[in-house]
Design a protein around this nucleic acid. Structure first.
Length: 957
RNA sequence: GCGGGAAUGGUGAAAUGGUAGACACGAAGGACUUAAAAUCCUUUGACCCGGAAGGGUUGUGCGGGUUCGAGUCCCGCUUCCCGUACCA
């Protein structure tokens, strides 16, 4: 059945429009009449088919156990006030192509989109203007939706989520509550209910307990049982997965909030670039470190790039070593240190504590107290940034000594800020001969240096490598001399465990995530305080909605903005937590919510989760490697432990798209004049480069009139031209308003159409690569689509003729290339393949219906609007998104080969196969090449050599 | 420092170890046009020979190696980009 009501109507509409255009063109410009062929009118086509998709809910997806699922996810955007620029859709286009391809292959594809709506910019805007962040955010989302809708994505908008929507963040809060009510059992390797821990403590105390903990506690059952409720609650914080703890945090005074490690880079905040200092604060934290090993192990089975996996491995930073006790001389305490170089213990000449270490107070002698206090004060004053820039060696002697447990020698204990409080035990044994930091410190304070490795010259610098033969390492009970470093490490570890002076230990660099933010625009904690102790609210209060406040600033006495909320109390009158959750809270499980976005009984129903399981393909920027992608994996693993989700890892395959940078244009003003000189001539003058709006530049040629109108001060600008043109210079910079290099996708869609934008973005280069946006090449892609259009316009679509051999070759070659390219995410070469195919078909004057049908199916993921148009013109019903993906047949791709007998070494004869039509010269050339190749056969005679002139394709012995 | 990646025409870039530069932009020339736009055709890595058809040399950051054959694989450098950084 071939009904085509839409097609017919569409044709009429198009005809009318075309005639109208002709008329206006006639009357305005007296141009010659247009032919019967209709121009490719992207505006009309795209508008019509986008409406068709909406009206028919073509992209709506439902769980369907009869079909295999495929889940394609984009990292959802933060809706910023600047709107989308042309770089944002890059990854979305790639994932959209993949989604459509998979759908055409028969998969049930989940391809959702939403908004990461909590964020600092909206809040800062609110502080400045008083406008509620919700309004700002909603406006920005509206703008994003408009922009996205024009590009023709196959998102199922019915599943949209917004992290600031109470229906959504109910489940963010819910997850937090589950974490509060859980502890991590290291033996079972999973999270368990806190009630089970309480039961264990009441029966055994901490004896035999293997739990991820803030610090090591030793409690008997009696001690635990005799605690008050308040004491018990405070003690449990040591094990909860969401817990409160006094930790060193990154405090940003300008932002008035703490930041997570991944939100700080080079000592300044990632957002805003403000200095960050270290501060001890009581904060909500997530015990991510409990999952360090699983996060590490899980990477092996993921299809992520090696670089991204490596980044995560480094961030997790597993290191195997030993914890050792060094007794303090004259005191009843021991210093605990962590080292990966247990073998170097005979070279320890001093010890160093972090300034924040709890040992400091106990070890400072009265004589040194003044000096130590002064040093601590100095360290405290320095920001993290200053600490990093100013790498001068500094430190102070505590006055105390420790005893090296192996040599028995007394060694001084120092304090220095090169030792970090947050890693290991906050104390180190210093081996200046084999650690560059200890070396610098020893040199500066003139402390002894004992070399331990044969042949290592430590007169100028330390020898840090973990290799060589040990020396100077013999004590009364342990002799390491003559051993290789690795052997020595193993032997020492064994020895200290036997002697009870230490234990083998694995340390991770990964810290627990700080989960409090002293801000307004985030998820409130479902937590209240009774007698200064945190209690969870009842689950029935969820979602605990964000209250209104009059101002978004901190309160005058330094409390977070929620301190201004009226009645921010439980019905019983207990105060509710004033902090809100950080940005990563809402983005950690959004991929699960898409599976079942309207469920108000569960984050995701077991049925929906069992069907969609995990994300098959995740596309997004690599900047989330150490933030979102760690937190999300942690969050997922926790929910996995709870039995809420069925997959341990959330993102099976991950592709990082590169950033699109801006291409800034420059004009060159001659100093102290209003005269501008063209790029080629600028070296003859003393010039100042000035950024100019990219919209005033076409192909590096400046629109001079536009430039004069752009700014009043340029109204009477003069120009020194070359070849009658003003050529601008350019530089690659971040795309931003202040650089005048922002290209808006709306403008491109308006001028060339969404299909052109989509194909051009893919054509720019490999998807993973960062590259500058350059509108210059877009005409080529647009030209290609017009050629394709003309191919259809010329064709006789009513004919059922079989394609010619040449036509079949073109189209099957294309199908093979495009299929392979999509699988490999190599879209730029696919676009090229389309161009070649269309050119070849143009040369063949092809208008074959079956050929065009196949092309339509192949191009549908790339240019869905034009494909939909073709699909209906071919008389099909429904949407091209469900058009079956064409299989290619290799038989059409095989060249016709002709055999030529050839003599070799004067006697041997073998056969060369060449493509049909090869001339004598080609045969001779091939024979020559084959002779060389035959040598490699080690005297064997080739039976057959298949040659494309100059290129040996295959040798059969 | 450490980790990851990259280097190919004027530009963006292609090349399972097999004719390097596909495809596109730009540029130059031509056709159509009163003209322009649009469209189409030709040329386009560099150098050299030739009146021309055509032919030759060279060429994928640098230096070696493996191979009949290397942009591609191995070893050693140089430069650039990204990530991370006192993690003991």
């Amino acid at each position: 059945m071939k009904t085509k009501p839409l097609c017919g109507k569409a044709r009429m509409r198009r005809l009318k429009k075309c005639q109208k255009n002709c008329v206006t063109l006639h009357s305005k410009r007296l141009t010659k009449p247009l032919t019967d062929n209709m121009e490719y009118n992207h505006k009309e086509i795209e508008k019509r088919w986008q409406q068709f998709w909406r009206d028919n809910e073509v992209y709506r997806v439902k769980e369907d156990p009869a079909r295999k699922k495929f889940y394609v996810l984009d990292m959802f955007p933060y809706p910023s006030g600047a709107g989308l620029h042309v770089g944002h859709p890059l990854g979305y286009i790639a994932s959209d192509i993949y989604s459509r391809y998979k759908r055409q292959q028969g998969f049930n594809v989940l391809h959702p989109m939403g908004y990461d709506a909590y964020g600092l910019p909206a809040e800062q805007y609110a502080i400045q203007t008083g406008q509620h962040p919700e309004i700002t955010t909603r406006n920005n989302i509206t703008r994003y939706e408009e922009q996205l809708s024009k590009i023709g994505f196959s998102f199922d908008w019915n599943r949209e989520v917004r992290t600031c929507d109470p229906k959504y963040y109910k489940w963010t809060q819910w997850a937090f509550m589950q974490m509060f009510n859980s502890w991590y059992d290291l033996q079972a390797g999973k999270a368990r209910p806190i009630s089970e821990l309480e039961k264990y403590l009441s029966e055994h105390g901490t004896e035999g307990l293997h739990a991820a903990e803030t610090k090591e506690l030793h409690l008997t059952a009696d001690q635990w049982n005799s605690m008050t409720e308040k004491e018990k609650r405070q003690t449990l914080m040591n094990w909860r997965i969401a817990f409160q703890g006094e930790t060193m945090v990154n405090w940003c005074p300008q932002l008035g909030t703490v930041l997570a490690n991944d939100e700080v880079s080079e000592g300044v905040s990632v957002r805003g670039g403000f200095p960050v200092e270290q501060k001890l604060m009581n904060q909500w934290c997530l015990r991510v470190s409990a999952y360090a090993q699983r996060l590490l192990d899980g990477l092996d089975k993921l299809q992520w790039t090696d670089s991204l996996k490596e980044t995560q491995r480094n961030w997790i930073g597993r290191s195997e070593g030993a914890e050792m006790l060094f007794p303090v001389v004259g005191k009843d305490i021991s210093l605990e240190i962590f080292t990966t170089r247990a073998d170097t213990i005979f070279g320890v000449t001093f010890m160093v504590l972090a300034p924040e270490s709890a040992y400091v107070k106990e070890l400072v002698t009265p004589e040194q107290k003044a000096a130590v206090d002064a040093y601590l004060e100095e360290v405290k004053r320095k920001t993290e940034r200053e600490r990093q820039i100013d790498k001068k060696v500094s430190g102070v002697f505590t006055g105390s000594f420790a005893r090296n447990p192996l040599t028995g020698k007394e060694i001084p204990i120092w304090i220095s800020d090169y030792v970090l409080a947050g890693y290991g035990t906050g104390a180190i044994m210093a081996v200046p001969a084999h650690d560059s930091r200890d070396y610098a410190f020893a040199r500066h304070f003139d402390l002894p240096i004992i070399p331990l490795i044969e042949g290592a010259d430590v007169s100028e610098e330390s020898f840090d490598a973990k290799e060589g033969v040990m020396m100077n390492s013999c004590g009364p009970k342990l002799d390491l001399n003559g051993l290789q470093v690795k052997e020595a490490i193993a032997k020492t570890k064994k020895f200290i465990e036997e002697e009870g002076i230490g234990k083998v230990k694995v340390n991770y660099r990964l810290r627990d995530a700080i989960f409090s933010r002293q801000r307004y625009w985030g998820e409130p904690f479902p937590v209240y305080y009774k007698d200064g102790t945190a209690y969870l609210m009842d689950e029935s209060v969820l979602p605990l909605e964000l209250p209104e406040v009059k101002s978004y600033k901190p309160t005058p006495d330094g409390e977070p903005p929620l301190g201004r909320a009226e009645n921010w109390k439980t019905p019983e009158g207990y105060p509710i937590e004033l902090c809100t959750m950080p940005g990563f809270a809402g983005s950690s499980a959004y991929y699960l919510r898409y599976m079942d976005p309207h469920n108000d009984q569960a984050l995701v129903s077991p049925e929906a989760n069992a069907y969609w399981r995990d994300v098959d393909l995740y596309v997004g920027g690599s900047e989330h490697a150490t933030g979102h992608l760690i937190y999300s994996r942690f969050w997922n693993k926790f929910l996995y432990d709870l039995g809420v989700v069925v997959e341990d890892e959330p993102f099976k395959r991950l592709v990082n798209q590169g950033m699109i940078q801006g291409r800034t244009s420059f004009v060159y003003r001659i100093k102290d004049t209003n005269t501008f000189v063209s790029r080629g001539l600028k070296d003859n003058y003393d010039v100042t480069p000035i950024r100019v709006d990219i919209n005033l530049v076409d192909n590096d040629v400046l629109d001079i009139d536009g430039f004069r109108k752009w700014r009043p001060e340029y109204a009477d600008a003069e120009f020194v031209l070359e070849d009658g043109k003003y050529i601008c210079g350019y530089a690659v910079e971040k795309m931003s308003k202040s650089m005048f290099n922002v290209v808006n996708p709306d403008d491109i869609v308006d001028r060339y159409g969404a299909d052109t934008l989509r194909m051009y973005e893919m054509f720019l280069g490999p998807i993973e690569q960062s590259k500058p946006w350059d509108t210059n090449g877009i005409d080529g892609v647009n030209r290609f689509l017009r050629k394709l259009w003309n191919l259809f316009d010329r064709a006789d679509l009513s004919s059922d003729a079989e394609p010619s051999k040449e036509e079949l070759k073109v189209v099957h070659k294309l199908a093979k290339k495009v299929t392979q390219d999509i699988e490999n995410f190599s879209f730029n070469t696919s676009v090229a393949a389309f161009m070649i195919a269309v050119n070849e078909l143009g040369q063949l004057k092809s208008g074959n219906r079956k050929v065009l049908d196949m092309i339509t199916r192949l191009i549908a993921p790339f240019a869905p609007h034009i494909a939909e148009e073709f699909w209906h013109r071919l008389g099909n019903e429904g949407s091209v998104v469900d058009a079956e993906w064409p299989a290619y047949d290799e038989q059409y791709l095989v060249e016709d080969m002709v055999k030529y007998p050839v003599s070799f070494n004067g006697k041997t004869r073998f056969t060369i196969e060449l493509p049909a039509g090869a001339d004598k010269a080609a045969v001779e050339e091939a024979a020559l090449k084959a002779e060389g190749a035959a040598k490699w056969l080690d005297g064997k005679q080739p039976r057959k050599v298949i040659v494309v002139p100059g290129k040996i394709v295959n040798i059969v012995v």
